[in-house]
Design a protein around this nucleic acid. Structure first.
Lengths: 95, 95
DNA sequence: TAATTTGGTTTATATTATAAACTTATTTAC
DNA sequence: GTAAATAAGTTTATAATATAAACCAAATTA
């Protein structure tokens, strides 16, 4: 009947992060922050969770002299997102 | 960009309850319990939250001598569900 | 050189979801 | 007839989660 929803993706901010990265393939921390409207602290925590799960990869580099955190979705993340969307459909009365 | 997700509906069990009631218009507590696979305690709590929010109405009646709790969705609940689905679409890359 | 901004991380708190424990009444089994 | 089991929930305790506040380091600007 209802498919279980991946708790890692069933979170407003983490879902927004993954959604962004699915379209963009790569995004910098401040850009994600701006697009999602999240606080830096919250974003940092959620990015870390997605990273630990292997849904995204995080590259810490530099842009000139300033630190720059780049996030990318992984194949695991793409698969998880697709599965989440399919599971969601069982709740939304979509054929 | 991303529309905020109604926290009352962004919950696996409450979303399942609403989803059921959208289709069924009326359902008894044990039926919802069976369809969602929830424990009675969890279901009781979530039904109460939806009821307090006015998303569903709860009628406590009897079936023969046994108590029988009937749940129905309200117009408020229908509106909220539709809005939630629209908001979700901003995360799912659906046009 | 003092203040502000940038780019975050860590930690504390408040909320939430969830199940365990409990209650009350009704059947069913002996 | 009474003891055990089932039905239908509710209340309470716990564990997980989301979130923002506080913090840190370096670079830039005043």
């Amino acid at each position: 009947m209802f498919q279980p929803l991946d708790p890692l993706l069933h979170s407003e901010l983490r879902l927004a992060i993954i959604s962004l990265l699915i379209s963009a393939e790569e995004a910098e921390f401040p850009y994600i922050k701006e697009q999602t409207g999240a606080t830096a602290g919250n974003l940092s925590v959620q990015v870390d969770k997605l990273s630990v799960a292997g849904y995204i990869e995080v590259e810490k580099t530099f842009k000139g002299k300033r630190p720059c955190t780049i996030c990318r979705i992984t194949p695991t993340g793409i698969t998880a997102f697709k599965a989440y969307v399919e599971a969601l459909k069982t709740y939304l009365n979509v054929k």
